[in-house]
């Protein structure tokens, strides 16, 4: 793990953010599973927005739906779901910052997330620049497919890595 990454953990450890998060997690009855469910519902919205859109671009799903129209309709859902997931995730991140910022799988999750967000943002911004941008030529359609494939894999890896944070010792077995 890079030093600046682990030092974020050290910075948060013992801060008021940690005490606030720990207070909520330990005082409000059922708070941990409820917040985790909110987090998974956010992932469900990721699946129902960008993942379905990527499957559509790859020609695998919902053939009647139009790519440009889908992008315009689904992207706000994705960005709101991500915002919600940042908040729900922050409770756990702030609660035990050292657990996450020293965890190599969390590092992978953040890396995949950055990849996924950049690819999706690129796709979204280009489609806003010009009506039917990605469908206007076969070259652009093939670029859209390449972006969609990478984006799809990145989003799935974010979810996958997220679950494996708890199982880090299976991959990085303690020496």
């Amino acid at each position: 793990m890079p030093d600046y990454f682990t030092s974020i953990g050290t910075l948060l450890d013992g801060s008021f953010l940690q005490s606030g998060a720990l207070w909520a997690l330990s005082t409000i009855p059922g708070f941990p599973p409820i917040i985790q469910t909110v987090h998974i519902l956010g992932i469900a919205v990721v699946m129902g927005s960008v993942v379905i859109l990527n499957l559509r671009i790859l020609g695998l799903a919902v053939p009647s739906q139009n790519i440009t129209e889908m992008t315009r309709r689904l992207m706000p859902w994705l960005w709101w779901a991500l915002t919600s997931n940042l908040v729900s995730g922050a409770f756990f991140l702030f609660g035990r910052p050292l657990r996450y910022f020293n965890n190599p799988i969390f590092g992978w999750k953040v890396s995949f997330l950055i990849c996924a967000v950049l690819l999706t943002l690129f796709f979204h911004l280009m489609s806003r620049r010009e009506e039917a941008y990605w469908e206007s030529s076969s070259k652009r359609l093939w670029s859209a497919r390449a972006v969609a494939l990478l984006s799809l894999m990145s989003w799935l890896m974010v979810a996958m890595a997220g679950r494996w944070i708890a199982y880090v010792e299976y991959i990085y077995y303690p020496a």
């Binding site: 992932i43 469900a44 699946m47 993942v51 996958m160």
Partner: peptide, 8 residues
């Protein structure tokens, strides 16, 4: 991942 996809 599969459950999130079902619900999504």
């Amino acid at each position: 991942i599969a459950a999130a996809f079902v619900v999504g």
